[in-house]
């Protein structure tokens, strides 16, 4: 058997350095990563990378910072499986493997000049954050911007400080809801769909972006359709078991689509007839 080093392989991995770690919750940490020579990851908001801890494996993680942040990028990682568990054990200055970015991100060019309703449920805030940051950093390129967030309980809300900043901005309409309130919670209570009827949306110029747990999409899309938002202007990011990122290993397949290459971001009109999608 001959072994040859492949100069070009899509399985090649770069070593990223952990610049900073911030604990966001008992289960989530935010890792700020630098590539060798502070090279740019060159991603679109909504894309993901394969993150490796050698000897343990690789996990797909969506990049949660905007490409407008150049020297480093952020990964928000929940301790939920073998690889993410091993990533949580790493320290600042440590290294992990980075492969990618992969997939089709949010169509930011298409969104420009339009009103945006950015909707995240639970951990959906993680991929959506890259888009929110991008939009805020290029704020005048977009029309009216609404951010609607929902999660189960107030203490599950990630990026609290940052969200507070979004809330204070005069150029962003912000609303937030929890399924179950805590005593100190003075905000809205109820599932995320309850935030939509109150929004004033102009269907011709509104794009809605939805990221959340699988169960959420059907109901949120239903509310948006009631508001006459066209299918093409409803954009979702779907979660699947992305492994190779190359549209081959099959784990992320949704009927004929490979979530890792054709998605994870889809326009609703592309997937509304796909029964396995949502």
């Amino acid at each position: 058997m001959n072994r040859q080093i492949l100069k070009s392989s899509h399985f090649a991995v770069e070593r990223g350095t952990i610049v900073r770690i911030k604990t966001l919750s008992p289960h989530e940490k935010l890792f700020e990563i630098a590539l060798p020579g502070n090279a740019r990851l060159n991603h679109d908001p909504g894309q993901f990378v394969g993150v490796s801890v050698f000897g343990v494996g690789e996990a797909p993680i969506s990049v949660c910072s905007s490409p407008t942040k150049r020297d480093t990028f952020d990964l928000c990682i929940r301790d939920v499986g073998r690889v993410t568990h091993a990533i949580h054990a790493l320290k600042e200055g440590g290294s992990l493997g980075i492969r990618g970015p992969f997939g089709r991100g949010f169509p930011v060019r298409l969104l420009e000049g339009n009103d945006l309703v950015l909707i995240a449920g639970g951990l959906g805030i993680v991929p959506l954050r890259s888009l929110v940051q991008y939009v805020i950093n290029n704020r005048r390129d977009f029309g009216k911007v609404s951010i609607l967030l929902g999660c189960r309980t107030p203490d599950e809300m990630l990026f609290g400080d940052e969200i507070e900043q979004w809330n204070k901005r005069i150029d962003v309409h912000f609303a937030c809801t929890v399924d179950r309130a805590a005593p100190e919670w003075h905000g809205h209570v109820g599932v995320i769909t309850t935030l939509i009827p109150g929004e004033m949306l102009v269907p011709e110029r509104t794009f809605a972006v939805i990221v959340g747990p699988p169960v959420m999409y059907k109901y949120v899309i239903g509310e948006l359709l009631k508001k006459q938002i066209p299918d093409r202007q409803i954009i979702v990011s779907l979660e699947r078991h992305m492994k190779c990122g190359l549209g081959r290993c099959g784990h992320c397949q949704i009927e004929n689509l490979y979530c890792c290459q054709d998605g994870p971001v889809f326009h609703y009109d592309e997937i509304k007839h796909i029964k396995e999608a949502i």
Binding site: G55, G57, K243, R248, G250, H251
Partner: peptide
């Protein structure tokens, strides 16, 4: 042609290989 991707560390735990296997 579906496959899984698995790491196999050597006994030194710092070196090893990543392989793919039919899934």
């Amino acid at each position: 042609y579906c496959f899984d991707v698995i790491d196999e560390p050597a006994l030194d735990l710092t070196s090893g290989v990543r392989y793919r296997r039919w899934d």
